[in-house]
Each structure stands twice: as C-alpha cells, then as structure tokens.
C-alpha cells in the first residue's frame, strides 16, 4: 500500500489527475491511497505520506520540500504526463521511484 500525495496550487487540477491515477492503479492491481492538496497544506500533512508528487507548475518548491522531508520521496510530474492527465504514466513513475 503506497500513500501518494499530489500537490498543486489549489489542489484543483491535481484532483483531476488523482481520479485518473486511481483508475490506472486499480487496473494494475497496485494498492494506493491518493489525495490532492494545495501547496500551502504540505508542511502540515506531508509527513503522513510515502511519496510527494508536485504538479509541474509548482515544481519550484521541489528543493524546499526535499529539505523539509529528507526521508520521503519527493518528485515532480513531467509536463507531458500532467497535461494529458495521464494517470497510468504517473503511477508508473511512482512504481519506478518506489521500486515496486
């Protein structure tokens, strides 16, 4: 079971991606818990998640978040996958990062 936190400015566009990722994960029978939240919430709730994924539009927070959560996997989503709201590709990115 992987807990995935998606982060963007207001948590709106990542929630679109969240739905697609949940569908893709179910198809792959990869157990996940996924939520989308605004960047302003990350420092408060970030510690409860296995992997933090940033939307490309807020990727400038990447180094700061890596510093705040040194034990977590923090990464940003590629513009291409994000634009297509490609749930499958992002799940694959997660599996690659977590080596599942």
């Amino acid at each position: 079971m992987r807990k995935i936190l998606l982060i963007c400015s207001a948590g709106m566009s990542t929630s679109l991606l969240m739905v697609n990722m949940q569908k893709a994960a179910r198809k792959m029978e990869y157990e996940t818990e996924i939520e989308a939240h605004p960047i302003s919430m990350v420092k408060t709730i970030g510690a409860q998640w296995d992997i933090l994924l940033l939307g490309p539009q807020v990727r400038f927070h990447l180094s700061d978040l890596k510093r705040t959560f040194p034990s977590k996997t923090v990464a940003s989503i590629s513009m291409k996958d994000y634009g297509r709201m490609d749930g499958k590709a992002v799940i694959e990115q997660v599996r690659l990062l977590m080596q599942d």
Binding site: L16, Q57, K80, Y82, G83, M85
Partner: peptide
C-alpha cells in the same frame, strides 16, 4: 481532443490540461 477536455475544465477556470497538454507552456 485537448481543447474539448479543456473546455470543460475551463468552465471552472482550471486550465492545466490545456497549458501542459496542448501545450502552451514553452
């Protein structure tokens, strides 16, 4: 395809699918 999807999101002022999908970015 992107435009059709973007029209729906755009109705609620969300446009990342268009910006990154078309893309407009870069």
């Amino acid at each position: 395809e992107v435009a059709k999807y973007g029209l729906g999101c755009g109705l609620f002022q969300v446009n990342e699918p268009v910006l990154f999908g078309l893309p407009v970015v870069l």
